[in-house]
């Protein structure tokens, strides 16, 4: 009897991917939401990044910080999508119900007002600038890390953040002038 035995089937895809996603998906979605300003675009960006991470999970799961790796994918995905679709899609900011609790340590009205200012600012920023702002002030990364994530020079990362802060100061000054 001529018997050729096939190679043993590859092991099932490593479940740690699902465990890792379960543990980090909320943080990744929050990050993607700040980048995109849209629930659906955030989900798409994270899903797309995770699909690519899944394809190389044996490698990705072994890097020092898989989350940074995936965040970089999300940033790249968002920027490349924006380049592809800009001027064709104009996301409209969705005003959500505030989570601020009345009587909390901060005046709820003030929190809502300042959050809306930040929302408007983010909506106006080009994606790379917006990503730099999110990485600097939400992720608390230094400029070297931001530059590495965005794939740009450190000076460029500083410039992105500086321009965003300048825009915010201008807007706040206009508001103060209106008041």
């Amino acid at each position: 009897m001529d018997v050729r035995v096939s190679a043993r089937p590859a092991p099932v895809v490593a479940p740690p991917f699902d465990d890792w996603v379960a543990a980090r998906s909320a943080a990744l979605l929050r990050f993607a939401y700040l980048l995109t300003g849209s629930q659906s675009e955030a989900e798409d960006a994270v899903q797309s990044a995770l699909e690519r991470a899944l394809a190389r999970w044996q490698h990705v799961s072994r890097v020092d910080d898989p989350e940074t790796y995936v965040r970089r994918m999300i940033v790249n995905e968002h920027i490349s999508l924006w380049r592809r679709w800009r001027r064709r899609v104009s996301p409209v900011a969705v005003v959500r119900e505030s989570n601020v609790v009345a009587g909390g340590p901060t005046d709820p009205a003030e929190v809502v007002a300042s959050t809306d200012v930040v929302r408007r600012l983010c909506a106006q920023l080009p994606p790379a600038q917006r990503a730099a702002v999110v990485l600097r002030f939400y992720q608390d990364l230094d400029y070297r890390e931001i530059a590495a994530l965005l794939g740009c020079a450190e000076a460029t990362a500083r410039s992105h953040v500086h321009r965003a802060l300048h825009a915010l100061r201008r807007e706040l000054a206009e508001e103060d002038g209106d008041a």
């Binding site: 990050f31 939401y33 700040l34 989570n99 300042s114 930040v118 929302r119 999110v134 002030f137 939400y138």
Partner: peptide, 10 residues
Amino acid sequence: MLREGLGHLA
């Protein structure tokens, strides 16, 4: 303001 605002937005 950015730190707080981004936290609330997220």
